[in-house]
Write a protein that binds this DNA or RNA. Sequence first.
DNA 1: CGGTTCGTTGAGATCGGTCAACTCAAGTGG
DNA 2: CCACTTGAGTTGACCGATCTCAACGAACCG
Lengths: 226, 226
Amino acid sequence: MTMHVSHIRPATPVPAHEAPPVAGSELAEAIALMGARMSFPRNAEIYGEGEPTDFVYQLLSGTVRTSKILVDGRRQIGGFYLPGDLFGLELSDEHAFSAEAIGEVTVVFVRRSAVLALADRDGCVARQLWTATARELTQAQNRLLLLIKSAQERLAGFLLQMADRAGGGDAIELPMTRQDIADYLGLTIETVSRTLTALAEDAVIELPSARRICLRDRETLEFLNG
Amino acid sequence: MTMHVSHIRPATPVPAHEAPPVAGSELAEAIALMGARMSFPRNAEIYGEGEPTDFVYQLLSGTVRTSKILVDGRRQIGGFYLPGDLFGLELSDEHAFSAEAIGEVTVVFVRRSAVLALADRDGCVARQLWTATARELTQAQNRLLLLIKSAQERLAGFLLQMADRAGGGDAIELPMTRQDIADYLGLTIETVSRTLTALAEDAVIELPSARRICLRDRETLEFLNG
DNA sequence: CGGTTCGTTGAGATCGGTCAACTCAAGTGG
DNA sequence: CCACTTGAGTTGACCGATCTCAACGAACCG
């Protein structure tokens, strides 16, 4: 587990540009207050698959992906996490996925046992714990819907989701590679590339550069999304 | 919502042959104790997509599927529920999927508000609420893994999972149609049929009849499952 | 017996995967 | 400053798994 400790300190309120408004949540606040801060360089592993789930993390800046390598070498992406998101919170005492930094990343983390103890004392926190998991479940179900559709539909859904999570604007800056997207959507990197250029040719999106995408025709994207 | 009320009564312990041993859980017990009983005929809708999530259900006998119809007519199966399973418990106050009876079904149900109130009073129940959702999340993630694989691998995973949930024996009696399986796995009914006959030709499974399946070569199935 | 639902099988079309070449941008070091 | 390398992304040709369309078989039920 390669990691760079930038500074570990008890508290400090989080600057607005690092953690965007999250559902005013005692849980998130508690983590921010009780937690230690840590930074990871590009591609560093934050925790590995199978490691004990000792900590719960909140992302301050950067993007994190969770992933899992199958026996045959294929990789499945569990999800992408943006600033403000909680991750690493699992029922099992072993991580089902590993978490890696996409680019430079800063997190706060606290002991899982501390969170569980807090939940036992405070019913409000307990409910937020449930809420957080339920929200991940909803997201997983939405992704299930994506995975039964065509490549075009998967990409449309992915782009809309990313635009939504990034703040709702039409211009998105994708932090992840085509390979990450492909593994997330159950496609190959070539199909992702081809489908994006096809969407650009149909003027549904614009591709100023590989990582920058502009949604031009939300109508059509929504239609493709079903 | 077509339903047949067989009898609504305050309690009665559940006979063992109807509800197999479930994780000795106050939550499930509370539902069984507080709940009313209801029966549904084959293909009846227990609740519909978009309806308020007023009730939480526990399945006593039969099989339930949750599903969702997409705009273009395709259908996605949310999951299958076997006796003892809880269903209908969602974060949102509207059901994201509808629930239907596969064959004759009996359930107990209680008001969702009663469960939430109980969770507020009893931290143990609150944790079980979380646990139940986390378990569904794990299942959803496993299905995500299935959906990125080939038809053979999906079927292998499905069969192993069903055998496991049905008690671990090698002989399974599938309650659902090929269409249900296809929609669950994101395949067509023809591909499901062909893949099953192919597995039978390879002596990996036996097909005494369409709905009865015997696992002959678990080794190979596990291998296919990754 | 006819109708209906469910499942199987076949032939051809299509979408996405595989393999391979090429472009482009960003270092790196002489 | 420029060759060289490296990683990411795009594009093309071909192939195979899965879908589509269609016919057929089996079980069930009035």
